[in-house]
Measured scan of single mutants.
Amino acid sequence: KKIKIDLKKGPEGLGFTVVTRDSSIHGPGPIFVKNILPKGAAIKDGRLQSGDRILEVNGRDVTGRTQEELVAMLRSTKQGETASLVIAR
């Protein structure tokens, strides 16, 4: 099931960490939400869960991207702006 979640970045950030699983010589594996932090946009919104697979960030497919690339995409969202995620659960 795909779910679109918009998180408005506040002073505590987006409020979640990510982890890559099953990376191989063929490229990075899928990226999942690792933890929801006690402060930040994710816990206020309440929909994002540990174990959700991140498919898109701000309309860009993240398949084949590294964890570092995904984190850079999320960090490029400025405070007060919205990060738009599509996740699979």
Rank of each mutant, 00 (worst) to 15 (best):
49 Q>M: 10
65 R>Q: 11
56 E>C: 10
25 I>Y: 13
74 L>G: 03
57 V>H: 03
34 K>Y: 03
74 L>M: 12
76 S>G: 08
20 T>V: 10
84 S>A: 11
8 K>D: 14
61 D>Y: 06
23 S>V: 05
35 N>H: 13
48 L>E: 00
20 T>K: 11
29 G>K: 05
71 V>A: 14
3 I>L: 04
61 D>Q: 10
69 E>V: 05
33 V>H: 00
29 G>S: 07
80 G>Y: 10
8 K>Q: 05
35 N>W: 06
72 A>C: 14
46 G>I: 01
33 V>L: 03
85 L>R: 02
21 R>G: 12
28 P>T: 12
26 H>A: 11
2 K>V: 03
77 T>E: 11
82 T>N: 15
52 D>Y: 00
7 L>S: 02
46 G>S: 06
14 L>Q: 01
70 L>R: 02
24 S>G: 06
34 K>H: 10
51 G>W: 13
13 G>S: 07
15 G>I: 00
9 K>R: 15
14 L>T: 01
40 G>Y: 02
37 L>M: 06
3 I>C: 00
89 R>D: 11
89 R>S: 04
85 L>A: 01
39 K>E: 14
8 K>I: 08
39 K>F: 10
39 K>C: 11
59 G>T: 05
87 I>G: 02
21 R>W: 14
47 R>W: 05
59 G>D: 03
81 E>Y: 04
58 N>V: 01
13 G>N: 04
32 F>K: 05
70 L>M: 11
15 G>E: 00
63 T>C: 07
25 I>F: 06
24 S>D: 11
55 L>R: 04
24 S>N: 05
6 D>S: 14
86 V>G: 10
35 N>I: 10
40 G>M: 02
27 G>Q: 10
83 A>F: 13
38 P>C: 10
66 T>Q: 06
73 M>H: 15
76 S>H: 14
80 G>E: 13
7 L>A: 03
7 L>F: 04
24 S>H: 03
39 K>W: 04
17 T>E: 11
89 R>C: 02
18 V>P: 05
41 A>Q: 11
28 P>G: 13
36 I>P: 00
64 G>N: 08
51 G>N: 13
58 N>E: 05
2 K>H: 03
20 T>A: 14
24 S>M: 04
13 G>T: 03
49 Q>L: 09
82 T>D: 14
24 S>W: 03
55 L>G: 01
51 G>Q: 06
51 G>A: 07
77 T>Q: 07
23 S>C: 07
13 G>L: 02
34 K>R: 11
57 V>L: 13
88 A>C: 11
60 R>G: 09
52 D>C: 00
70 L>K: 03
32 F>R: 07
25 I>G: 09
68 E>H: 04
15 G>W: 00
59 G>N: 11
30 P>V: 07
5 I>W: 00
85 L>E: 02
43 I>M: 05
43 I>K: 12
10 G>M: 15
10 G>S: 14
68 E>K: 06
35 N>L: 10
73 M>N: 04
41 A>M: 13
13 G>Y: 01
7 L>Y: 00
34 K>G: 09
20 T>Y: 05
82 T>L: 12
69 E>F: 08
72 A>Y: 06
18 V>N: 01
21 R>N: 10
15 G>T: 00
71 V>Q: 04
49 Q>W: 08
66 T>W: 03
38 P>G: 12
64 G>Y: 06
55 L>F: 11
66 T>D: 09
62 V>S: 03
72 A>Q: 05
75 R>W: 04
65 R>D: 05
10 G>L: 13
7 L>R: 00
43 I>R: 04
56 E>A: 08
82 T>K: 11
54 I>N: 00
66 T>H: 08
